[in-house]
Write a protein that binds this DNA or RNA. Structure first.
Lengths: 285, 285
DNA sequence: ACATTCTTTGAAATAAAATTTCAACAATAT
DNA sequence: ATATTGTTGAAATTTTATTTCAAAGAATGT
């Protein structure tokens, strides 16, 4: 709490009307912010003069200055946002606000749920891997593809196939203990994800798991588990969109962490591939 | 919500005097906080009227309300975050902070760059479409898949093929003017995206475009353009991750907007498909 | 090219809010 | 009891915000 509110509640040298006004600010700061001095005078059974005098007594240049300070103090907590799920027939503005609030919570939740070291360790596994096999279904398939796209672009050897049989076949034929598997499963009990993990274990690969539930079967016997959406969001009635986004957020972290440690090479690779793409299409645009 | 400053810097529909005032707020927010409308009018070579009009245009009840918001935003830590790109050899804590900061800016940027009505109109096109054809390559392909997964799950008829030839073939054979095309292209000049749009135009489909650059060729002759990452982020040396995430954010908005208008049916469809999936795998887990 | 309509703009007028003044009243000291 | 000092809100004043409006400029149609 900021010094203003401390003063308001503990100051003893207030007159009767000053006390009334102080209490009003303490109890209804939100209301005070968009009220005029006169309105506050009425609401506190005092007067606009009393309100202005009070602001000056506290050392402000005037009443508006005090209001500004109250606004800053009470609103500095961004946490008063509406994190409820979208309901039926909401106006588009409400949709925007709710979706934004949910989206912006993701990094905080992810950071809160994982040890910082887990990201550093995962990055080590990535940079030491000969090949990286990555797999997930439905929305987790998008995450797998994102991993493939990003890390391939900076020169790593990332293998992903939509077709599960092909994925398994490729692994069985080419993977060994120098390789890394990244399993993505929101629920933690997707059939294919569990099988993929089992094969990775059998073949002796290092394993990173991305899942919502750290206690789920998928995390067992794995090297690193990175958890994504928090439990509180699991009850959503619809396709959880925070799940996908928080997984992609984790991928971003790993990607930037890798890039930061391999800056020059990564940048060069990206430029080379970009140039190649541009060249191919130059005659057809 | 620190969207104010993002809006001030990225909004393109400002008139000359509005731009002057916006710049003043961006450059000297601290000074603006204890200046009157008239003083700001003088300092920006405009007038008090212009300042008040500007505040109202941004949606505030008046100039004092805007000043209040500026004070709150300026003094919150949310605004003092480091939005620079990740550099070589940064500690993992810095990576986390930068990635988080970047991620949390996305909704503000997207909101600032698009009219609210555009989302509402796009939603209308989606709900009125017989079929929805969606296409994008590389990271935009992930967005296309996300659209397909989400909207298919609530019962809409969404067509996407990775293989461009197959995509085109399917469209040519089955699409007509009752259908909708959603084109995703960060750059706005991807070869396949442009061709996809051309075919959609030829066949008389409605068209929604998701792109970074509203002025790019891809937006021309389309019904709705939704812009994603702002220009200021385009200079990243590596695979832009904000591009993908902000596109997915836009998809989220459209999805929730659709769901909100079709609440019962959507919920039912989601439950039905979830039950079906569970049933299939029950014996194999 | 020209007329017409729509926008943008700041000066001036008006409204609203903040601040000061001041007389009434209350508490305290003498 | 009575001067002294402090507190108070109504009313007057000042400051600030807001609206109105006419002029200038841009965009659009003919």
């Amino acid at each position: 709490m900021n010094s203003l509110f401390v003063r308001l509640s503990s100051e003893k040298n207030f007159t009767a009307s000053e006390r009334k006004i102080a209490n009003f600010f303490l109890e209804k700061p939100q209301l005070a912010i968009d009220a005029t001095a006169e309105k506050i005078g009425k609401l506190t059974q005092t007067s606009s003069s009393a309100v202005v005098r009070f602001a000056k007594k506290l050392g402000y240049s005037g009443f508006p200055a005090m209001k500004l300070d109250i606004a800053v103090t009470t609103n500095s907590d961004q946490n008063n946002r509406d994190l409820t799920e979208v309901e039926a027939n909401e106006p588009i503005t409400a949709i925007l606000e709710k979706t934004s609030a949910r989206f912006q919570t993701i990094p905080d939740v992810v950071t809160a749920q994982n040890e910082t070291a887990a990201f550093a360790n995962a990055t080590k596994l990535i940079e030491n891997a000969r090949h990286i096999f990555v797999y997930g279904v439905t929305s987790s398939s998008l995450v797998a593809q994102d991993i493939q796209q990003k890390f391939t672009r900076v020169g790593l050897d990332v293998i992903y196939h939509t077709d599960f049989h092909q994925m398994i076949t490729t692994m069985q034929a080419t993977a060994n203990s120098q390789d890394l598997a990244i399993v993505i499963s929101e629920s933690g009990h997707t059939f294919e994800a569990l099988k993929f993990k089992k094969i990775s274990l059998d073949l002796g690969l290092k394993i990173i798991v991305l899942t919502n539930d750290i206690k789920s079967e998928i995390s067992r016997e794995c090297d690193i588990t990175l958890t994504t959406t928090s439990q509180q969001f699991d009850k959503v009635r619809f396709a959880s969109t925070t799940g996908l986004l928080s997984q992609l957020y984790v991928v971003d972290i790993l990607f930037y962490a890798y890039i930061s440690k391999h800056y020059q090479e990564s940048q060069q690779k990206v430029e080379e591939t970009r140039a190649r793409i541009n060249k191919i299409y130059d005659n057809h645009a």
